[in-house]
Design a protein around this nucleic acid. Structure first.
Lengths: 240, 240
DNA sequence: ACCTGAACACCGTTCAAGT
DNA sequence: ACCTGAACACCGTTCAAGT
C-alpha cells in the first residue's frame, strides 16, 4: 500500500542524497516491522515474504541481518520485554513496598503479553536468553528487598516467573484462540463456560463448578489475586 | 522400515480374511502414531506425510478421520493427559493428605511433559479443551478436600495449574532447546549459567547471582519446592 | 558490504477419482 | 464409507549473481 511506497521512497532518497543517514536496512527496522506483523497477524502473520514486502526488499536481504526466524522472534520478543521493564512506571515504584512493585511488574507483563500475544510462546521457546534475563532481574531485586533468604531466591523467582508467564501466556492464548474462531474474548469464555457447565457431573464435578466463575471472572483481577497468593506463600514460614 | 511393512501387512490381512477386525484406519491408530512421531521428532516431527507413511496410506486419508493438524495435536495431547491423570498412582493416594496428592499429581504432570515435551505447547494452544478439563478436575478435588472456601476455588486452581504447566513447559523447552543445539540438558544449563555469570554486574546483579543455583539445581526438586510455596500461600490467612 | 530474486525442499490441505 | 495421490498455495532458507 502507501506504506510500502513511502518506505521505498525514504530509503532510496537516503541513498541518493543523504550520506550520513543509514542507507541500508538495519536490524532495528526489521525487528520493528516484525513486531507490527506479529501484532496484526499473529504468529502466522510473520513471514519472510510479507516482511520483505513491507521493507521493500527481497527475502534474502533479511538473512544478511538476522540468522533465522527463531532469532528474529527472540529479538522481537526482547524488544517488547525491554520496553515493558523500562517503562516509566519507575518513579511510581519508589517508596512503595517490594510486594507492590512485584504486583506492578507482573501487571505490566500481563498487559504487554495481552497486547502482543505472540510474546507468550516466544518466551517459552527461548529459555535463558536476554528477554528472560531482564525479567528475572527485575523480579529478583524485589525479592531481595523483601528480605527473602538467599537460599530461597531461586525457588521464589522461579515460582513468580512461571506463574506470571503461565497466566499471561494462557490469557493471551485465550484471546488468540477466540480471534481464530471469530469471537471476542467474552463470547469465547461464554462458549467454553457453556461446554464446561454440561460436563458429566459424576466425572467432572469440580470442573463443572468452575463454569460460573469462568463466565464472570476478571482476568486481570484474578491474575493479581494469584500473585498475592504466592506472595503470601513467600511470607509464610515453612511448614516442616 | 520393517515397521511400515508390518503395518501394511496387518491391515491388508485384516481386510482380506478377518471381517470383524477393524479393516480401516481408526482415529486411535492415527493418534498413537502421532504421539510416537512427536516424541521422537519433536513438534516438527509430526507431518501429514511422515504420518501417512507410518500408517501406510496417503496424506488425504488422515483427513477422513481428523479435521486438521490442530485437532490432531489436541487429541494427542489429551491422550497423554488422560493416561497421566488415570495412572495407577490411584491407590497410593488414598489416606494421604490432599497436599501430598497435589504434589503427586504435579509431579506426574512434570514427568509426563518431560517425556513428551510437545505437550507443553500443545496445552497452551488448546485452552478450555478436554486436556485442561481433566487437569482442573483432579487438582480441584484436592483443593476442595483441603477445605479451601468456595470463593477461592477459581484463583487457587488457576495458580496451581499455571505454575505446574509453566514450570513443566519451561523445563521441557530447556530440554528441547538443548537437543536442538546438540547438547544434553546438563551441558545446556552449564552453558546458560556461564553466560549469566558474565552479565554486567551493575545492570544485572540478581540474574548474575542466579548463575550458580542454575548450574547445580535439581529441576524436579525445585519444582516441588515451588508447589510447596504455593500450598503454603493457600494455607495462610489473607494479609488484608 | 549489502541486496536481488529465482530455486530448493519442504509444509498443510483439497479434491477428483477410485474401491 | 473410506482411501489414493496428484495438485495447490504456501513456507524457511540458500546462493549465484549483481551493485
Amino acid at each position: 500500500m502507501s506504506r510500502l511506497g513511502m518506505a521505498k521512497k525514504a530509503r532510496s532518497k537516503a541513498t541518493s542524497s543523504n550520506q550520513r543517514r543509514e542507507e541500508s536496512l538495519t536490524r532495528e527496522q526489521i525487528i520493528e516491522a516484525s513486531i507490527m506483523l506479529l501484532d496484526s497477524g499473529g504468529e502466522g502473520g510473520l513471514t519472510f515474504r510479507t516482511l520483505s514486502e513491507r521493507l521493500a526488499t527481497g527475502p534474502g536481504a533479511i538473512y544478511w541481518h538476522i540468522a533465522n526466524k527463531s532469532d528474529l522472534l527472540t529479538a522481537a520478543c526482547d524488544a517488547i520485554i525491554a520496553r515493558t521493564m523500562n517503562a516509566p512506571m519507575g518513579s511510581a515504584l519508589l517508596g512503595t513496598t517490594p510486594q507492590a512493585t512485584i504486583r506492578l511488574l507482573a501487571l505490566a507483563m500481563f498487559d504487554a503479553i495481552d497486547a502482543h500475544p505472540w510474546v507468550g510462546s516466544a518466551l517459552t521457546r527461548a529459555p535463558g536468553q536476554s528477554p528472560m534475563v531482564r525479567l528475572v532481574e527485575r523480579l529478583g531485586q524485589q525479592i531481595r528487598a523483601m528480605g527473602v533468604p538467599k537460599k530461597e531466591h531461586w525457588v521464589t523467582v522461579s515460582a513468580l516467573l512461571n506463574y506470571i508467564l503461565g497466566v499471561a501466556g494462557r490469557n493471551a492464548a485465550n484471546g488468540q484462540f477466540a480471534r481464530t474462531e471469530g469471537l471476542n474474548r467474552t463470547d469465547f469464555l461464554e462458549a467454553v463456560s457453556a461446554v464446561w457447565s454440561q460436563l458429566d457431573i459424576g466425572e467432572y464435578p469440580f470442573a463443572r463448578s468452575m463454569a460460573a466463575p469462568m463466565r464472570s471472572h476478571d482476568d486481570r483481577k484474578d491474575f493479581l489475586d494469584g500473585i498475592d497468593l504466592i506472595l503470601r506463600g513467600i511470607g509464610s514460614p515453612l511448614r516442616k
